[in-house]
Design a protein around this nucleic acid. Structure first.
Length: 653
DNA sequence: ATCGGAAGCA
DNA sequence: TGCTTCCGAT
């Protein structure tokens, strides 16, 4: 019996059939599954990424348009190749596209509407699902298949990045990454195997499992943190370009320091360049012709998704910070969006608002006690930037000082529904709190009277927090209902109120604005699927609005954003924020005790509400496919930013 | 062209 | 579980 599988043939170099040939009559082995116990077949999206990486298939399938977007130029050929790989000689585009459509529900892909044969990867999803990005075991797949370390042609550390700022789970100091030599032997190309089992940290290295895991954790955190930073920088720049006269700062990011291996926690960039995967060009007509003034981002990366084909499970990106093409920016931003996921600012003081987008990974503070100014939220700081594996739903134990002011909009609601999934990477708008504005139908309280009432409302809310010891409704029994509710636990009372307000139709016949808004906006409890972490904004000195105001308008084109965009855009969000921040002179200082300079240098950390949000279940799953849908029901992360504490917010009003 | 239900397969 | 196959609807 011939046990030769497709995989065997591929490994041995025996072609199944050449692209372009008529569908052959396949030999017997071709009809056998290549799957065998312990090794899963290649998945379609892996395969797509493979093709996208290979130069020779540029005329068949290629990156195009936005980041993660690709166009199948020759559907029949792609189908044939896929069928070849899967030993399905009758594969065609109709079938292949059905498989692709299944990725819609899984949020791996979505269709680029209006563009034929054009789909877009949801790298956000991929990253989360395939966490960790880094692994100590990095397979090698030949020149087209980057090793992990090559994939992590990591941006050189920011000069401002202290060596001890990342503190995950209480770790006081970073664990240095393994030396490159520790990377295990390379796997020959062609071994299509799922390394999910075989690449567990420590499996192939001499280091002890805990250390490996810690390092992995660290690496992943660093990666995400850095991406997060770059994401924010990009948003900042783009947003500036949208709302400021054009003119660009000479250099947003200082020339990176060349750090030695000992001091460089992410020394991947010192690895040989020939391992680096040359990313597909992410050029496109949708990207702007960026003026040279933009190109002085010293560390603009070439950033391209890469699938670790050897592992079959990991997904990574290439950073080439030496190859800063202006065309890199959009992808770059999207990539970072993938890590920041959804950021919303709802309540910060003027300066923090203005600086929020400058949050630096080097300043992401997991251990909040470092700031001696005041005590922070206790308890574990969940992995906003380093999600635990597996993703766990953690209930924040003590959200005492945590008074979120989340303005929930229909837009936001829709954003997380499948219907608007075309904006996977969109970052929701940031809603300034100190001076709340009406956004998409949200009720405002701009005038003084309402503002005052609003303050009372919010104070009352904070007073109702369990830890204040003042669980007395200072609203003075606005209605009988509320008086009756006194016997109800506070949290439940608020939940009820919140729910009621959510059910209120927006717009006409709204109840008293302040009450409605307060009820809608303030949600002082943590839901079961929410957690709290803390982010410290990067010091203002790193980039100022004035510097950023020089941004030209090309980023606008780059984003292809319009005010009427269906989904809130990062840039518009940041625009809201920036405009708020620019009014800082008109906003009373939130922390009178601190000088402005001091606050620039040491911005208050921000509480971040991290929501592990279940995807919306697809509507009306069929009976048979119900289980199917459930299988694909995966969590996502929603990040909502919160003020460090109430003093800043309330004092600023 | 695209979508998605349904059933089947490994 | 991840498709593959088929097919009716839009």
């Amino acid at each position: 019996m011939q046990q030769c599988t497709c995989a065997d043939k591929l490994k041995s170099g025996i072609p199944l059939w050449r692209p372009g040939e008529a569908a052959p009559r396949l030999p017997e082995w071709a009809y056998k599954s290549e799957s065998s116990p312990g090794s899963r077949q290649i998945q379609l999206w892996h395969f797509i990424l493979e093709l996208l990486q290979k130069e020779e298939f540029r005329d068949v399938i290629a990156w195009q348009g936005d980041y993660g977007e690709f166009v199948i130029k020759d559907p029949d050929e792609v189908a044939r190749l896929w069928g070849m790989r899967k030993c399905k000689p009758h594969m065609n585009y109709d079938k292949l596209s059905r498989a692709l459509r299944y990725y819609y529900n899984k949020r791996i892909l979505h269709k680029t509407k209006g563009k034929r044969f054009t789909y877009k990867f949801n790298f956000n999803k991929l990253i989360l699902v395939n966490y960790p990005v880094l692994d100590v075991d990095c397979g090698y797949y030949g020149p087209h298949f980057p090793t992990c370390e090559a994939a992590m042609q990591y941006p050189r550390p920011m000069p401002t990045l202290p060596s001890n700022v990342m503190m995950m789970d209480g770790a006081a100091a970073p664990i240095p990454p393994a030396a490159p030599q520790a990377v295990p032997a390379r796997r020959p190309r062609g071994s299509v195997s799922d390394s999910s089992e075989e690449s567990a940290p420590g499996d192939h290295t001499a280091e002890d499992g805990a250390a490996a895991h810690a390092r992995l954790h660290y690496n992943h955190t660093m990666l995400q943190a850095h991406m997060y930073d770059r994401h924010l920088q990009m948003q900042e720049a783009q947003q500036q370009s949208m709302f400021r006269p054009s003119h660009r700062p000479p250099c947003l990011i200082p020339e990176p320091l060349r750090l030695g291996p000992a001091s460089d926690p992410m020394a991947f960039h010192q690895l040989p360049r020939d391992h680096a995967f040359q990313p597909p060009k992410i050029h496109s007509e949708s990207l702007p012709s960026t003026p040279s003034s933009l190109s002085d981002y010293s560390s603009s990366p070439q950033c391209s998704p890469m699938f670790d084909t050897a592992s079959g499970t990991r997904f990574s990106f290439n950073f080439n910070f030496n190859a800063g093409s202006p065309f890199d920016r959009k992808p770059h931003q999207d990539l970072r969006s993938a890590f920041t996921t959804h950021v919303r600012v709802s309540s910060v003081d003027g300066e923090d608002k203005a600086r929020l987008q400058e949050v630096s990974p080097g300043r992401i503070t997991i251990d909040p006690t470092k700031d001696g100014r005041r005590e922070r939220s206790p308890g574990r700081m969940p992995g906003l930037l380093s999600p635990p594996r597996p993703m766990e739903r953690v209930r924040s134990r003590s959200p005492q000082r945590f008074v979120p002011k989340v303005v929930k909009t229909e837009e936001e609601d829709e954003k997380y529904t499948r219907g608007s999934s075309s904006q996977f990477l969109a970052v929701p708008r940031l809603l300034p709190m100190a001076r709340r504005h009406s956004v998409d139908g949200c009720i405002t309280s701009e005038n003084n009277e309402e503002g005052a009432r609003d303050r009372r409302q919010r104070w009352s809310v904070s007073d109702m927090l369990p830890d204040t010891g003042k669980a007395v409704d200072q609203e003075g029994g606005q209605n009988d209902e509320e008086g009756k509710d006194k016997s109800i636990p506070i949290k439940l009372r608020f939940k009820r109120k919140y729910s009621q307000s959510q059910e209120q139709p927006e717009g006409q016949d709204a109840p008293a604005p302040a009450a409605a808004e307060t009820a809608r906006v303030v949600r002082p409890w943590l839901d079961d699927d929410e957690r709290v972490t803390t982010v410290r904004p990067r010091p203002r000195a790193f980039s100022t609005p004035a510097e950023l105001s020089n941004q030209n308008s090309s980023a606008n084109q780059q984003e292809k954003l319009t005010p009427s965009s269906t989904a809130p855009s990062a840039a518009s969000s940041m625009g809201d924020l920036r405009r708020e921040g620019s009014q800082e002179d008109s906003i009373p200082q939130g922390d009178a005790a601190r000088s402005r300079a001091d606050r620039r240098k040491n911005p208050h950390p921000l509480h971040v509400r991290v929501k592990v949000e279940q995807e919306e279940e697809p509507a009306t799953p069929s009976s048979r496919n119900l289980a199917h849908h459930v299988r694909h029901y995966r969590p996502q992360i929603l990040i909502k930013e919160e003020p460090e504490d109430l003093d800043d917010v309330f004092a600023s009003e």
